[in-house]
Amino acid sequence: MVVSSESRLSRDHLQGGLIISVQAPEGSPMRHPDVIAAMAEASLRNGAVGVRLESPEHIGAVRERCPDALIVGLWKRSFPDSSVYITPRWEDIRAVWAAGADVIALDATARKRPSGQELEMLIEQARTELGATLMADVDSVENGLRAAALGCDWVGTTLFGYTEDTAQLSPPAMNLLHPLREQLPSSTLLVCEGGIASAVIAADAIDGGADAVVVGTAITGVDLQVAAYCRHLKRQTV
């Protein structure tokens, strides 16, 4: 039976759910589309309600292997005139959507975007021309509320600790959850993402007001996890 996008995006399906970020750094053998798709399938088979994927290539590979999967898609792109890198431009939004994403994640912080493109314009275009569901990756309560007011359906704490204004802070953004949940429209899905290193922390995020959580490095970040273990062991033997 084919599962519709509407069913995948229903609050009943997502509430209290785990979304796995299946990504790998440039140069890693884990970055192959077949490997990403296999990790995504394993995540879904074991209870994840969806996956978060980077690049049209990986979105397409997972959509082909897991046609019923809920896919949150993004494309990391770097430009010299901006520090925004998560689906920063209109052409990146279109590419993620065309590849098969159900939800498009984009940087919704107040930072300047490349080529002078404006967040308001991008959200309006994505909604009117594509009919896309949008996830705002934010770093603060203020930016989360602004993104929802502009039309984003999901708000995620993804960039807390990763922007110039929050670089001194460490995720997870537990302190953002309660004020966001209190002030966001009830229809807006609140997602805790970033720094969730255990099942206990994930449960704490749900208890704190998140509707769903995204976990990446702690589960699928083979490169970063192995490197961290090795660094720690080397310190122990010095």
Rank of each mutant, 00 (worst) to 15 (best):
D34M: 15
L169S: 12
V191C: 12
V222L: 14
A48Y: 00
H58T: 03
G195P: 06
I20N: 03
D81W: 00
R113Y: 12
W90P: 10
W90I: 06
K112H: 12
N46S: 12
A132K: 06
A167W: 11
V35R: 03
V103T: 02
N46C: 10
H178S: 12
A69E: 09
G100S: 08
T163M: 09
M121T: 14
Q125R: 15
P179E: 04
S82T: 09
A38E: 13
E142Q: 15
K234F: 00
R8V: 04
T157A: 07
C152L: 09
G156S: 15
A24P: 12
V138E: 11
N46M: 02
S115L: 11
V84N: 03
A38M: 04
R65F: 07
R231V: 09
M135F: 03
A48V: 02
L44A: 05
G144T: 05
L9G: 02
A167P: 12
T87K: 03
I219S: 01
Q168M: 10
G221K: 00
E142M: 10
G17I: 11
L145G: 05
V103Y: 08
A24C: 13
Q225A: 05
S115C: 13
V22Q: 02
Q125M: 14
E120Y: 08
S78D: 14
K234M: 12
G60L: 13
G151L: 07
A101L: 07
L134S: 07
D211C: 13
C66Q: 11
R8P: 02
W75D: 14
I71S: 02
D207Y: 07
R235F: 02
P67R: 00
P29I: 10
V213H: 01
G73N: 04
A38F: 00
G60D: 07
M135R: 05
M1L: 08
A136V: 09
V138M: 10
T220C: 10
P185F: 01
A197C: 04
L180P: 00
D107L: 01
D211P: 15
R31M: 10
A40N: 06
E129M: 11
S78M: 12
Q183D: 09
W75I: 04
I206V: 14
A101Y: 06
N143D: 15
L134R: 03
P25L: 05
V200P: 00
V62G: 03
A98Y: 00
R111D: 15
